[in-house]
Design a protein around this nucleic acid. Sequence first.
DNA 1: CTCTCCCT
Length: 828
Amino acid sequence: MSSGPATTPDLPIEAVLPALAERLAERSACVLVAPPGAGKTTRVPLALLDAPWLAGRRIILLEPRRLAARGAAERMAQTLGERVGDTVGLRVRLGSKISARTRIEVVTEGVFTRMILDDPELVGIGAVVFDEFHERSLDADLGLALALDAQGALREDLRILVMSATLDGARVATLLGDAPVIESEGRAYPVETRHSARDPDQRIEQAMTDAILRALRADPGSVLAFLPGQGEIRRVATLLADRIDAVTHVAPLYGALTPAEQDRAIAPAPPGRRKVVLATSIAETSLTIQGVRIVVDSGLSRVPVYEPGLGLTRLVTARASRASVDQRRGRAGRTEPGVCHRLWAEAATNALEPFGRPEILAADLSGLLLDCAAWGVADPTTLAFLDSPPAPALTEARAMLRALDALDADGRLTPMGVALRALPLPPRLARMVVQAAAHGRAREAANLAAVLVERGLGGDAVDLGDRVERYARDRGPRAQDMRRLADGWAKQAQTFARAQRDAGADFSEAGPLLALAYPDRVARARGRDGEFVMANGRAGRLDPALPLAREAFLVVADLVGTAANARILAAAPIALETIEALFPERIASVTQVAFDKGARALRARAQRRLGALTLGERILPVPPDADSAVILANGIAELGLSVLPWTPALSQWLARLRFLRAADSTWPDLSDAALGATVTDWLAPEIVGRASLDAITADDLGCALQALLPWDLRARLEIEAPTHFEVPTGSRIALDYESEGGPVLAVRVQELFGLERHPAIAGGRVPLVLHLLSPASRPIQITRDLPGFWRGSWSAVRSEMRGRYPRHPWPEDPVAEPPTRRVKPRGT
DNA sequence: CTCTCCCT
């Protein structure tokens, strides 16, 4: 291996600079792929400065982070022996250093998007250089799409250079019109990679703790460990505390720490001591930790998943990408050769996604859509994006911007949209500030917006009123910077403000202000345990010990977690009267009819609703309409159809039809399941105007059942399955169709005297099951063969019965005897 | 099992 960067001042990138200059002289776009340590960020812009095609115009260098932008500007200025603001300038949100002499402007990606939207011709600019493009931020993707559009339509002479560390350069080159790709060597010390697959039953915290302790014993130097999030970092720190030696210091490192805490975490260990830094993906790029020789990588990272439809983002723990784990490994070889321990089997590396998911595929696109509309493009998918913005997120963004009144029906910018774009804030918050300005509260709204966009400003209390108050008392440099910015937003918003009628809300308070930005996240308490339901239908919870948890209504600004378990991170209370005053056109009056199972009756309520949220309700008489009847019918079906007012005749009717259906499927299916599934069709029309089960009569049920039988089958029913059977005495006896063996005719035996043939129905096809009864209607015999009975067991029955009922006829030959229906004994 | 990171 060659010697390291410390001993060789010439950087690997120098070797490709002549080729790069040559390509850019003849082509308008170029891709430069160079791994970390190549020196591209600082060397390339300076090398292009004297190119003839630049003709004295400026170069814009895009960096993904303010820290990186400041560092690049400082190093380039130093190379020239100048200060930032001379030849090399800087333009970031908080503070710009630009002068008339400036030829290279280092800007953050978001700044460039605004620059090109304000000046699509990019007057005075000869080249735009995208650095760290492999990070694929939303702003970089949008900035490149807009720059390509401008180049094609207005500025064919504009040079576009895309620089990237690990990118698949060919894809970008295609996007840039088959631009040439130049590759450079990187420079890093060798890093030995060791794999050890984790026992799947072991928790990641335990595996990481064991691996760190092993690594400390095996090699000298400090350790940088990558974990997915704060929770894991805290738990590993606790586990390590019991088992680590006194000369080794454990330092957590993640984004939510204050800058001072972060500085302490990345400071080198004192001589003779070692350090274990437990970090999130924050340590993959942008900050270097001195003295790290050992990296231990869990292979996991926490990534956001945007849910269009709810307009919310939740976090999931996922395997880190191949690019990400390689980047992590590289952190061990920054200053000397190192070791990287990976907590997975070597073969699993090939199964990793090659790159992390580009932000444009998993983000809220409302800002992007608004910017595109300002560019004159209503459909962003017509621009040259490396990955096209996904349709569901665009649909959601379009709906939100329409609701904010920022776009018209054709997707063009409205005057409100112009006003929102003038504020460098997310569209919802911009709308809040503009609308508050119309009521003379621009300053209050801008301060609330500041607390919402700058993480940690005003602390992390859930109650945003508390955060605004703390921020107002904060005299630190960051708070002062943000106050200057917020003042600018407020002034800008006031230029668009036209005095409006009284809104009936006090916009000096956080809750009413927030409602302007998040009308869909107005929430109502459900129960007492800090549970709230929002107008968008989703629920979230608060620590029940917080005073905020006792409020009836909140506006939720931020929450995390899965749909089933979302935690509210920022909110402010709002009064019911304020909600009613703010959203008269959004609040709908809904009459709701529901079946009360306990009372077995319908209940009607008039509800005032904001989306999924019920603001108030009162009891109403049940409307006697078809809709109510359907709800009652379905409620009854849930209880079971046996609760209906069945009479013996209706039960028999049903049994007759089921009997026929069993043999012949031209008859309708009237099983319990089929009837229950179709109550809307047959029961509901006959119970219109009924408000409870008790109000339904047997007649209602009869009419409803009749409707189940087509006209042409009604006459056949009487023939095939008659209700009664006429015996020789002339008695019409009801048949029982519910018996399992078939339809039953139960009759006193004397009424059958003279009958030679067995009685049958259904055109003689189905013999009845005869239940022969004594004069006292006690069962004597069951038979399906009456002639056989007369010939056979009748004589035995006769001898027994004659003794018990001596005054009734028990003839020797029943076929020859006249039938009788007399029950009373013959005269005495 | 209380939040990844970044920007106008």
